[in-house]
Design a protein around this nucleic acid. Structure first.
Length: 265
DNA sequence: TAACATGTTTGTCG
DNA sequence: ACGACAAACATGTT
């Protein structure tokens, strides 16, 4: 899926496309996506969409009589329809606009609740604080990783510590902060925490600016997708700021990319 | 062909 | 209790 920046873009799009609009039609095309509250979906028709918001990598919508929580997993996306393929559900507003949930692998899911249910469900997930848009201090970051014993790159992806950072962001943040992914959080200096604190919202902003569009393009979907990234999927290439080489290693089963020269071990 | 994929959950083994 | 890994989900790309 999308990580935090892509979900943020889709949330902004959903706000633009749907909030204040009345739902004229709604259809579940592939029932595998509905994992909770199918009965509430029958209430959507005729409702006005009242709000759209993001929490970590989840998108939530509230209407007059229901609320929805969308999770995109690996390949889900919300696009302006009608889309040519892999549409799992869609809705159309009174103004004639259609919004499609597209998901090639169909790993993503849709949950429906009464109007306050989506917020309550999100609150119960045990997600950590948002690293965006507010800039936090290095001390704040250090304290969030108190007691973390796994490598910093793995810990960054722990949604209970900081919400919304995925595999790409974790590698990119550490490259920006010049921190080696194998480092243990307890060994980071105050200067390194300060660098992570600054690099995180700055990089998220960069990705939002680069990728904002009606349809998100994921890495692997197009030739130039991924040009935003300094190390991700650049194994063997020269580092953009030094003579080092980008390496790829596995950490907790996920690929990590880093520069073998300027990211301090 | 086999490996791999911006995510999460579950089970297993240390 | 915690950490690391593999599998599972399902399908497309390299």
């Amino acid at each position: 899926m999308p990580e935090l920046p892509e979900v943020e873009i889709m949330t902004r799009n959903a706000t633009r496309w749907l909030v204040g609009e009345r739902i004229e039609a709604f259809e579940i095309v592939d029932e595998r996506v509905v994992v909770e509250g199918a009965a509430h979906l029958a209430q959507l028709q005729g409702d006005v969409v009242r709000s759209a918001w993001r929490r970590a990598k989840h998108l939530a919508l509230r209407t007059d009589s229901a609320s929805l929580a969308v999770h995109f997993r690996m390949t889900g996306k919300l696009v302006l329809g009608p889309h040519p393929g892999r549409v799992r559900w869609w809705l159309r507003t009174e103004s004639g606009r259609r919004v499609d949930y597209v998901d090639a692998r169909c790993l993503g899911d849709l949950r429906a609740f009464p109007p306050t249910g989506a917020q309550e469900w999100l609150d119960g997930l045990g997600l950590g604080p948002e690293p965006y848009p507010e800039l936090q201090t290095g001390t704040w970051w250090r304290e969030r990783f108190d007691g973390a014993r796994s490598a910093i790159k793995v810990a960054l992806m722990d949604q209970a510590r900081i919400a919304g950072i995925g595999n790409i962001l974790a590698s990119e943040i550490l490259w920006n902060a010049r921190v080696h992914p194998f480092r243990k959080p307890a060994t980071l200096t105050d200067g390194e925490w300060h660098a992570i604190a600054g690099a995180t919202p700055a990089f998220i902003d960069l990705v939002i600016n680069e990728e904002s569009a009606d349809e998100i393009v994921y890495v692997g979907e197009s030739r130039d997708a991924g040009s935003t990234f300094a190390v991700y999927a650049r194994e063997g290439e020269q580092c953009l700021r030094c003579e080092g080489t980008v390496r790829r290693v596995k950490q907790s089963g996920r690929s990590t990319f880093y520069c073998d020269h300027c990211q301090v071990a």
